[in-house]
Design a protein around this nucleic acid. Structure first.
Lengths: 206, 206
DNA sequence: TACCCTGATGTCACGAACTGACATCAGGGT
DNA sequence: ACCCTGATGTCAGTTCGTGACATCAGGGTA
């Protein structure tokens, strides 16, 4: 048998989430996490760059999914439509592990340092999205803007989903939010009218 | 005369910017900054929450300007138009102090920790913007989305402005970028019509 | 079988980021 | 003459994060 229990990384993630949840991020020391996971503090830092990073899985498939879906979308599609499809395709990633996600989300919501890190991850996502859009032939500014808008919409959609008492699928919130975007360029009194217009056949995602 | 040289805070800001610029953020210790400013390390932490915060002025007028301009805009305007005006009105804040801004920007661009902090500041801005839009009567999701998209557009516009060899005014980049955003958001068949409606004057997207 | 190599971990030492508690003392008000 | 306040100094301590080196099971190879 091997010298140590296997999956030290997994144990560290679990221990960290439990402690952060139970006593707060600030009140938890890396030494505590390590002890609970049965390793030393030094080993924690061999697996995670810092105390925050343990909440942001390194094997995150999101960039690849978004890039793949974006690159694969039919060329004549409008940029925002491409992004909508990519985000919808990525939605399941958030819906699996539905047991741990709320804990994780609560911890992050309770701590500004962790929110900063989350914003950084989202910005990185926007960056890869912009890169992929450029490869589709979009001009620089357009690509960057479309990517940023897409991520912005995702942030809002995710927020809605987390707080949705009816537990509608994330994909639905994404589509609705991106539909809402269309209201933004119309004066407020036309909002309801625009609502009808925008509801024309957006369900064609394969 | 007073017991110490006045404006310790200002001296700390200056010393920090110089050192960050000259030897990098990581390679600079708070002790160094304090010594150069003629105070102790402890005093640094009385003025700034942490080593990063010294680059993000506490007297930042941006939130107030944005909130004020947003609240004051005519009610029938489309949300994105309201935001465009607010951002344009805030633009001068970035264009004054044009001597220090590039240094500051270079330091931030060179360090991920500082970029995280900048993203957090922008997110806070989006949050106040959303709050003000809600007070104008906008529904929750619409307000949040408009604010996020506005900040997203601002990020892109600011990036363009910083790298603009022709040094066009920031306000122009903001208008152009938000015009691009309208094209992205509007369904293709409505794009030209929306273009006429949203046109506020001289600008034209090439 | 005997040997070496590798990779994951432990051990130790240390600098640098922050924080709490208490001391100091000019200037202003009473 | 007195006290109060606010900005700073002093000091001790915790925690984060890193470099350098030691350990040793398991796998490959002669």
């Amino acid at each position: 048998m091997s010298r140590w229990e296997p999956d030290a990384r997994g144990r560290l993630e679990k221990a960290a989430l439990e402690l952060y949840n139970h006593q707060g991020f600030d009140a938890t020391t890396v030494a505590e996490i390590a002890t609970r996971a049965g390793v030393t503090e030094r080993t924690f830092y061999r697996h995670f760059a810092d105390k925050r990073e343990v909440l942001f899985p390194a094997d995150n498939p999101l960039p690849d999914i978004l890039a793949g879906a974006t690159a694969a979308a039919p060329l004549p599609l409008a940029p925002l439509e491409v992004i909508t499809r990519a985000l919808v395709e990525a939605a399941p990633v958030f819906e699996e592990r539905e047991d741990l996600a709320p804990q994780r989300q609560a911890v992050i919501a309770a701590n500004p340092e962790l929110q900063e890190r989350e914003l950084a991850k989202l910005a990185a996502l926007a960056s890869t999205l912009a890169h992929t859009l450029r490869q589709r032939g979009l001009e620089n500014t357009t690509a960057a803007l479309a990517a940023e808008i897409g991520i912005a919409a995702f942030k809002v959609a995710y927020e809605r989903w987390v707080n949705d008492p009816d537990r509608h699928p994330l994909a639905q919130h994404i589509r609705e939010t991106l539909d809402t975007a269309r209201h933004l360029i119309a004066p407020p009194d036309q909002a309801t009218a625009t609502d009808d217009v925008s509801r024309t056949g957006q369900e064609s995602v394969a």
